[in-house]
């Protein structure tokens, strides 16, 4: 018995694992929180696009020897605001424009890493995430963004709700919709920035969508979604990370698979009800 318990706690003996699981859990909760807006506004393609854009910034800053958070941060927030503006105007072809720009940024990043990066290993780390490189600065960064997001969303809760549900009427009722949207895009860029090193470029958008969709199936209340979704995100990140140690699989893939499993279970358990609730979500 003691052996079993000792065995189950082995991963926690490693500092890198502890750092990794802390960052992953906070990142999961953070993605769950912002994912609520992503899912309800049907902008999952923006999460996808942003993570690809940030990748370009990450690669460029690695090659030019600029600090990751500075280089990728500036790049990410700039692309977030631009993407937000394109999407807001709802021009025909906005998705296509965003797709082209962000994929180009991604391709540029990849090319830079090929040409000037150290090894294939580092590309893999950026694409799929890695727990090995997690440092204290990552814990600080992800915690800071999480606290910032919670404070902003609580303080501006009503404006966020109104602008998400009915931007036009919100605007004429005195809500600064453009400002709220820019804020949301900024938080989303920051979230991707601090999450990317653990989760990786390719799987962040899934972490933005899965917990919020599960929360949507479980409740009909926006306020409740805002705490259920982060809990689901945090739990799936924690469990996924933990399992990955024993299964010897990629942490981010295991996190997403854990989330997917929860999705399937909730989908089955909530039955018709859950299905009608998520059927109205656009573009998932």
């Amino acid at each position: 018995m003691i052996h079993v318990i000792a065995g189950l706690t082995t991963p926690f003996r490693y500092q890198f694992f502890n750092n990794g699981i802390i960052v992953a859990t906070i990142a999961g909760a953070l993605c769950g929180l912002l994912g609520v807006f992503v899912v309800l506004r049907g902008m999952s393609y923006i999460g996808h696009g942003l993570s690809h854009a940030v990748f370009g910034g990450a690669a460029a800053s690695a090659v030019m020897n600029v600090n990751y958070f500075v280089g990728a941060g500036v790049w990410g927030i700039a692309s977030g605001v631009i993407i937000g503006r394109i999407a807001r105007r709802r021009l025909i072809g906005a998705d296509a424009a965003i797709g082209v720009v962000t994929t180009a940024s991604f391709a540029l990043g990849l090319a830079l890493l090929n040409r000037y990066g150290q090894a294939k290993k580092s590309i893999e780390a950026v694409l799929f995430g890695s727990v090995l490189g997690v440092k204290t600065i990552d814990i600080v960064a992800v915690s800071a963004v999480a606290i910032l997001s919670v404070v902003i969303i609580v303080a501006l809760y009503r404006a966020f709700l109104f602008a998400t549900f009915d931007p036009e009427v919100a605007q004429v009722s005195g809500v600064r919709v453009a400002w709220i949207e820019a804020l949301l895009m900024g938080l989303l860029s920051l979230t991707i920035l601090v999450t990317m090193r653990v989760i990786g470029t390719l799987l962040i958008s899934a972490l933005l969508v899965i917990p919020a969709s599960i929360a949507r199936m479980l409740t009909n209340s926006f306020a409740r979604m805002l705490w259920i979704s982060p809990i689901i995100g945090g739990v799936s990140a924690f469990v996924g990370m933990y399992l990955s140690y024993f299964l010897d699989t990629s942490a981010s893939a295991t996190i997403i698979l854990t989330g997917t499993l929860m999705f399937i279970v909730v989908y089955a358990v909530t039955g018709i009800r859950g299905r009608t609730r998520i059927s109205g979500l656009h573009h998932i």
């Binding site: 009503r158 009427v169 609730r277």
Partner: peptide, 24 residues
């Protein structure tokens, strides 16, 4: 209107009072 959006009748009605500083 997005009828699938997760809001209750009461939440919709009070929505127009969304100025900064109002608690959730």
């Amino acid at each position: 209107v997005d009828w699938n959006f997760p809001v209750t009748v009461l939440e919709v009605v009070v929505m127009t009072r969304s100025s900064v500083g109002r608690l959730p």
